[in-house]
């Protein structure tokens, strides 16, 4: 693997003030993720994994510590610069898809391009290409209520990919899907990873995390384990386990 870090986190802490109580969501996290990695971030609820995801996604600012995305130090950036960085560098995939109601798949995928200021003709082409990449080239004019859950999530993935981000950030991407559809979506993530995309996935499901190449586990605001995943190569056994669980 080339040494080209996409994410560099140093001693990150996050303290929330909830009334009189201080909640330490992150207690000194350091994490480096290289280009092309496929990382799962695991942990029980309350472990700080959602906070870490918000930090990686530039949706929140740490209390202390530094975060560089593709070498850009984020702590001194303005709100608008952070929005631009999210738009250019990060593709978000959410558990509940977060598609806009009653708007065609094509227009959903064009949305990040609108905020990037891409001309409408070019954005139409790019959105079509992204939908084809996730296997929905024939569904461009369908609205969310005309698509299955798996298809909706694939529209959301196309939307995440359309700006050619350096990082695909997925938050429980299979949480709202049945197991068969989950497998399809997981396969899509693996395919994108194989094409060289950096994928970071937050999940509490060990079977989903098991598909990643590297698993980072959080507990009580700290990283308690960070190891490469070598034992998932027997895909057939894995899928059998997934189906049964």
């Amino acid at each position: 693997m080339v040494n080209e870090p996409v994410i560099e986190i140093q001693d990150m802490t996050k303290v929330y003030q909830m009334g009189d109580i201080k909640v330490h969501a992150l207690r000194g996290v350091s994490l480096e993720i290289q280009k092309g990695e496929y990382v799962a971030i695991m942990g029980a609820s309350g472990s700080g994994k959602s906070t870490l995801m918000n930090m990686i996604g530039l949706l929140d600012r740490p209390t202390s510590g530094t975060y560089k995305i593709r070498g850009v130090e984020s702590s001194k950036l303005s709100k608008g610069q952070l929005a631009d960085l999210r738009n250019q560098e990060i593709g978000f995939v959410f558990q509940r898809f977060n598609l806009l109601p009653r708007i065609s798949a094509q227009r959903q995928v064009e949305l990040p391009l609108f905020y990037a200021g891409v001309t409408s003709r070019k954005s139409r082409e790019m959105a079509r290409a992204a939908l084809e990449r996730v296997g929905l080239g024939d569904r461009t004019h369908h609205r969310p209520d005309e698509l299955s859950g798996g298809q909706q999530q694939r529209v959301a993935i196309a939307r995440a990919l359309v700006n050619q981000p350096s990082l695909l950030l997925a938050d429980e991407p299979t949480g709202a899907l049945d197991s068969q559809t989950s497998l399809e979506v997981m396969a899509l993530f693996e395919e994108l990873h194989a094409q060289g995309l950096t994928v970071v996935m937050v999940t509490h499901d060990p079977l989903v995390a098991g598909r990643a190449k590297r698993v980072v586990t959080l507990s009580d605001g700290k990283i308690v384990s960070d190891k490469a995943n070598g034992h998932h190569l027997n895909l057939a056994a894995w899928e059998a386990a997934y189906e049964n669980h």
Partner: peptide, 16 residues
């Protein structure tokens, strides 16, 4: 609210 959150996540500025 969710739509607004999504738009902000994918790069909408406050002005947008």
């Amino acid at each position: 609210t969710r739509e607004i959150g999504l738009r902000k996540a994918i790069g909408a500025h406050d002005n947008d």
